[in-house]
Amino acid sequence: MIPAPFDYVRPASLDEACQVLGEAASSGDDVKVLAGGQSLLPLLRLRLAYPSALVDLGRLPELRGVEDRGDHVFIGALTTHDEVLRSGVVRERIPLVALATATVADPAVRHRGTFGGSMAHADPAGDLPAVALALDCVFVVRSGEGEREIPAAEFFVDYLESALEPGEVLIGVKVPALGPGWGFHYEKFHRTAQAWAIVGVAAAVRRSNGTIEEARIGLTNMGSTPVRARAVEAAIRGVSIAAAGSNGAHDPVRDACAGADEGTSPPSDLHAQPDYRRHLARVLTHRAIGVAGR
């Protein structure tokens, strides 16, 4: 299928991009930012979106790259999934991002699709938003007015809706680098390799002396936004990790995961009804913690 016509702007600088987007915002034009285009182009081809113009940020090198900043890693919004996966900094400092990114789509899509684009698209079925939420990432956005930071907990507003205001550009994401003692896992459950996650669980677990000191759990596709499994995080503190996935009659980790679906409102679609998603959230959270806490 074929997209409807649109105008095309390729700003030469971030300032110009902000200016173009600012002008569009004030005139009320439906302008969309084009990053890698791997979600946007299929939508345009299916004529599910009719933007008046695309603002292509693809040629702004300042939005691209991974930088180790000590307590966090800064990932430029236009860094492709492939570049994220190839980054030693990502693998060593924020491995959960690497684990989840490796499950995004397929290699060709990862060559074009971007880290920031996936976030700004705010698809709750996407793999990276749950990671951002679990790690308490901070989104750095810029407009003509200047820069501001949005915590992950406030960034994902609704289905395909982020906290980005018209005229704002996501320029990068600060991903907190959790210290030693943390383990990570992204558990993705899907029907075929290409299919969206029915449910995904991003888990970061800090262990000490065989006990889970702290866990951060983000859930994919369990609501209109990614969801934090706070009930599990609270219940799992101090639980012996040795029990996770154990064969004994009583598994306290499993008990702690029983609340994984608390506060979620999972969608109903072709591949799963809400009650099944709730069940999967519990099972997969248990599995994710088991691997992350290993």
Binding site: Y8, R10, G37, L41, G58, P107, A108, V109, H111, R112
Partner: peptide, 15 residues
């Protein structure tokens, strides 16, 4: 595209 596989239906010619 510049040595990396891409799906040419999901790339604009201008890109």
């Amino acid at each position: 595209l510049d040595g990396m596989s891409v799906k040419s239906c999901s790339v604009l010619a201008v890109q």
